[in-house]
Simulated scan of single mutants.
Amino acid sequence: MQINQKLVEKFFSGQCTAAEARLVSKYLADENNREVYLNSEEWEHFEPVEKVDEKISDRIYVKVLDHIHDKRETRRIRFRYLAYAASIVLIATVGLVAYKLTNNRVAKPSYVASNRSKPVTRVETFITNTSAVKKNYTLPDGTIVELYPKSEVSYFPFDQGKRDVNLTGQALFRVHKDKTKPFTVFANNLATTALGTVFKITAFKKGLYTKVRLIEGKVMVKPLSKLLSAGVETVYLLPGKVFTVNMQTYAASVKPFNVEAPKQLETLDPGKAIVTEAAIVFDNEPLSGVFNALETKLNIKINFTPSELIKMEFTGQYEFGRDDIDGFLKMIGSLNNLTVDKTDVGYTIKKIK
């Protein structure tokens, strides 16, 4: 008896005789014969609609579990399990071929969309200073970058437990404090890593020297690629130290440098808080003056009752880029027995009764 598409269609529609069914079943057991009715691409995209009846599936599952701990029947379990698996594969194959044949009657097969999630495209952001003056930029985590002329930074989203930034040129970084996400700047085969600090890197492509100056905190400067092969070692910088490497000879050194005091930009009235390039500095400042200064410079709204803050003062500084306003206000609140509640428009501060 000759096997043809008409006979196979009869087989799946249940119209074959017993002899014909045995013949077609044997024919489809050969993988090469199945390829006549469906190709590898269709197999790749196919998702059978029909499933094994839940009662049958449950019986198979229970049957396997009943014997899985019986050491005396290890071989029998193996063969039974394979038989069950083969049965399920056969059912899936039958449904697949039937799907193909049915769709051939009306049109080309349309593929069922996969439930597998597509990989998320991560887009790199570039910031370039083409002007003749230094410019300030704020990164997504709150870090402030003072980018010098003819310099560029780039970064991918900070969503994978780290904050990596590429630098070409010169920039000062006021790194936002976040112990869970190290902040690393890659420049001229050096990786400078910090958790929350202020440092300045000079790394022009054609520059003879690459330099890392630490102004506050602590950083690790790690050589990569050519510098690592040339024997440049990892160093840990302390404030007031500069790491310098000659990009031709690969000679490296650590020397002290004079840390310039932050330039004073303005004095806020009436509280007399001093604003520098790096921070708002408070010296025995009444809390009402502290909150007013934060409102002005950070463009936020802080609601409070002045009479509740009498004789309350604060000495310290709010560092741009490094400090988080939530944490800063809560720190002041805990020191002065105040509650700090975040609202839709800002913050509300009250004295604890």
Rank of each mutant, 00 (worst) to 15 (best):
S57H: 07
L90N: 13
T192R: 03
E152C: 14
T244G: 08
A132S: 14
I91R: 09
C16G: 01
I300W: 04
K26R: 15
E54F: 00
H67N: 11
F79K: 12
K63C: 03
E308P: 05
E308A: 15
I56F: 01
K205M: 05
A132P: 00
K330M: 13
T125R: 13
Y27T: 01
V64G: 00
N166V: 08
E146D: 10
L309T: 07
L38D: 00
F183D: 09
F158C: 11
E35S: 11
E41Q: 13
L224H: 01
G321L: 10
S229I: 02
N104D: 15
S57I: 00
G327I: 04
S57Y: 06
G333N: 10
T102K: 15
F126P: 01
N4Y: 03
S40K: 14
N32W: 02
A261V: 13
L195F: 10
R122W: 03
V221C: 02
N166I: 08
E216F: 01
N299Q: 14
I144F: 02
K297N: 11
D66A: 09
Y155W: 06
K100Y: 03
A230G: 00
G14C: 01
P149I: 05
C16A: 00
Q170S: 14
T315H: 12
N115K: 13
E216H: 03
V275C: 12
E216M: 03
T249F: 00
D53N: 13
L224Y: 00
A107L: 14
N39V: 02
A252K: 07
V219Y: 01
V123Y: 13
V254E: 08
Q248S: 14
K134I: 13
L335F: 11
E266V: 12
I215Q: 01
A21R: 11
T305H: 13
Q2S: 07
I349T: 07
Q248Y: 10
G169R: 06
T315N: 09
R34N: 01
L268Y: 07
T193N: 05
E308C: 06
D53T: 02
A278M: 14
K353H: 11
K255W: 01
G14P: 02
F204C: 00
F291H: 11
A132Y: 06
L7K: 07
K179N: 12
S87L: 13
D323M: 07
L238A: 13
E50R: 11
G142Y: 05
A92M: 12
G333Q: 11
T102M: 13
G271S: 15
D141W: 06
Q15M: 09
K353W: 08
A191M: 10
S57L: 11
T138V: 13
G327H: 14
R174F: 09
A92T: 06
L265H: 04
